[in-house]
Design a protein around this nucleic acid. Structure first.
Length: 594
DNA sequence: GCCGTTTTCGGCCCGACTGTTTTCAGTCG
């Protein structure tokens, strides 16, 4: 029984207690206990076994007994009882926006609704609107919520599939008959949302590789199984295709299946203009030249396509087309072919360029790891500095810090900094941008931080003009270092709030305010589509993990993918700077002007 | 269910918004 599993069980209990309509403070107690357990730095099982749980604030007699049962037997009878009182589908109803425990309880008790399908039917037959507390507007909203969920079901967030994708590649790479293997498709291009995974590999024994692939762990169902192409459904409903080709075909296949379609079309047009032809099978000279040297290879079997130009890898294909190599992230036909022709493909930022990061939370607000643990994890991963930016006081829901607690945290940071060598904690805040664009702290308090992340967390339902004005007002405050998650979107869950990003980017350029690339996989905000233009205007990017747990510090790696997709170079990303230069940049920002 | 102390039960995080209602409950951040 790991700590994380125990935490999950406590949270399940809290949710089920809510559904049962128990005293809300009781379910909160379970959530508090889960948080307390999370920030436990000692080994969970030994703490329970040695009876040290009673020293943990937030875990009392009742929950302690349940954790002891869990560690001793691996079971939790209280949770099992609770689970018996609701069908599994009822819990899933909570994921519909606007439905909380009270409403779900009514739907289950009064209409016997057990899952989303039954809920949809009940809304369509207007049985829901007749319930007390419900109405026609609620029915509409529920139906819209179900519809949204359904349309999202075919899509997956990059961060949710990266583990599976890497696992599949590793499995294939370990196979003795596999020569080369790579992810292809939108995943390889680093798209924030993917529909499926595409794998390309080369082998002289495709049948053996295919057999291994369809039986690999993580495969739930085989849709198609052939010699060169197989399709499977992975756990979690993600579709995955594998293509196996002879090794000499590999570069062309990889290029083709990486796409994008638009990029491929641009490359083909270019090939045609040069008297060549490009397809997934190769790059060919026109048929009339097929008697020239080197025509004995497999291309001679496809005489109508002419002689294949041999390329050992993708870079050679680009070179034969008179182009510089184009990294997969840029292959969207958004100017990369033209840039490659002029040899102006930027040298994109790499995740190993990052020297530090800002915008991390701790247990002081809504984070699940302590300041100490975050600092240790950052040092272990080789960072030179880590910025702590817990929530400000208006974010009650996130246990935001008031001025007094800010002072305490700053004191702790000062103390810890005296102990570090070659590493520094920076004291920051994720300060709420209030409804009128004022900030949640006075200027004198803001001045006490090393830096300020200004973010919108409430009041999303406003006009674009109002929201834009609000954010610009905040950015004009000289103490605001950077704008946090500029659109507030949650991928596949919540649309961005309305905001005029052109004006925000212009304002960032004028005031020298950095814009965050929030690397939390749910956000990836600001979107990569805006970065190229922002860079051209001189806006600096800062890649932040928005980490609420030590293991989330690694999110910056996904953020770097997105930055690359946005054409950003190392010099465009502030946190590639070493500590000394970052400190200088922070002072310069304070000094006014960019 | 936990905590604190006011030693045995009362308080536990706040405010805005929506849709329902006709004065407020539920949800969300």
């Amino acid at each position: 029984m790991t700590k994380d599993e125990a935490v999950a069980k406590l949270e399940q209990i809290a949710t089920l207690l809510d559904l049962r309509g128990e005293n809300p403070f009781k379910s909160r107690a379970y959530r508090t206990a889960a948080r307390a357990l999370e920030s436990l730095s000692e080994d969970f099982e030994s703490v329970v076994r040695e009876g040290k749980l009673d020293q943990v604030k937030g875990i009392g007699e009742g929950i302690r007994a349940k954790l002891q049962e869990l560690v001793a037997t691996g079971r939790l009878t209280y949770l099992e009882e609770l689970e018996r009182s609701f069908p599994a589908g009822v819990v899933a109803l909570l994921e519909i926006p606007g439905l909380g425990p009270k409403k779900v309880k009514i739907l289950w008790e009064q209409l016997g609704i057990r899952d989303l399908e039954e809920l949809e039917a009940a809304c369509r037959s207007h049985r829901v609107g007749k319930l007390s507390g419900f109405g026609s507007k609620t029915e509409e909203n529920i139906l819209a919520g179900i519809e949204q969920r359904r349309s999202y079901a075919a899509y997956h967030r990059y961060g949710d599939v990266i583990g599976l994708a890497e696992h599949l590649v590793e499995q294939l790479r370990a196979h003795p008959d596999v020569v080369r293997v790579s992810m292809a498709g939108s995943f390889r291009r680093g798209k924030e949302i993917v529909r499926d995974l595409d794998l390309v590999c080369s082998s002289a024994k495709p049948a053996a590789v295919m057999a291994a692939f369809i039986s690999s762990s993580g495969v739930q169902r085989v849709v198609n199984h052939g010699e060169t192409k197989s399709s499977v459904i992975l756990e979690g409903g993600l579709a995955c295709d594998l293509r196996v080709v002879p090794d000499e075909d590999y570069p062309y296949a990889l290029l083709h299946f990486t796409g994008s379609k638009e990029h491929n079309i641009a490359l083909r047009q270019r090939a045609i203009a040069q008297g060549k032809k490009l397809s997934e099978w190769g790059l060919f000279r026109e048929a009339r030249s097929r008697f020239s040297a080197g025509s004995e290879d497999t291309a001679s079997e496809r005489e109508s396509e002419g002689e294949r130009i041999r390329c050992r890898d993708e870079a050679e294909i680009y070179a034969k087309l008179g182009l510089a190599y184009i990294p997969p992230e840029l292959r969207e036909n958004l100017g990369e072919v033209e840039a490659a022709e002029r040899n102006e493909i930027p040298r994109l930022v790499e995740w190993t360029d990052l020297r530090g990061t800002f915008h991390c939370h701790t247990t002081a607000s809504d984070g699940h790891s302590t300041l100490k643990a975050m600092a240790e994890a950052a040092q272990e991963s080789g960072l030179e500095y880590l910025g702590i930016a817990d929530h400000s006081k208006s974010s009650f829901q996130a246990n935001g810090l008031d001025e007094e607690r800010v002072a305490l945290q700053q004191e702790e940071i000062r103390k810890r900094n005296k102990e570090f060598r070659g590493f520094r904690l920076l004291s920051g805040t994720e300060c709420d941008i209030l409804r009128d664009g004022r900030l949640d702290f006075s200027d004198s308090v803001l001045a006490s931080f090393d830096y300020v992340v200004a973010s919108v967390h409430a009041g999303f339902s406003t006009s674009e003009e109002e929201m834009t004005r609000r954010i610009i007002r905040a950015m004009e405050n000289p103490y605001v270092t950077m704008l946090g998650h500029p659109t507030g979107r949650l991928l596949l869950m919540r649309k961005p709030y309305p905001v005029n990003l052109e004006k925000i980017i212009d304002c960032a350029a004028e005031t020298g305010t950095w814009i965050e690339l929030n690397a939390q996989p749910l956000r990836l905000d600001l979107d990569w589509r805006w970065w190229h233009a922002a860079r051209e205007k001189g806006v600096r990017c800062v890649i932040n993990p928005d980490a609420h747990h030590v293991r989330e510090l690694g999110f910056v790696r996904i953020g770097v993918n997105i930055a690359r997709k946005g054409w950003l170079r190392r010099e465009d990303v502030i946190n590639t700077l070493p500590l000394k230069l970052v400190e200088k940049a922070l002072r310069k920002k304070r000094g006014g002007g960019g």
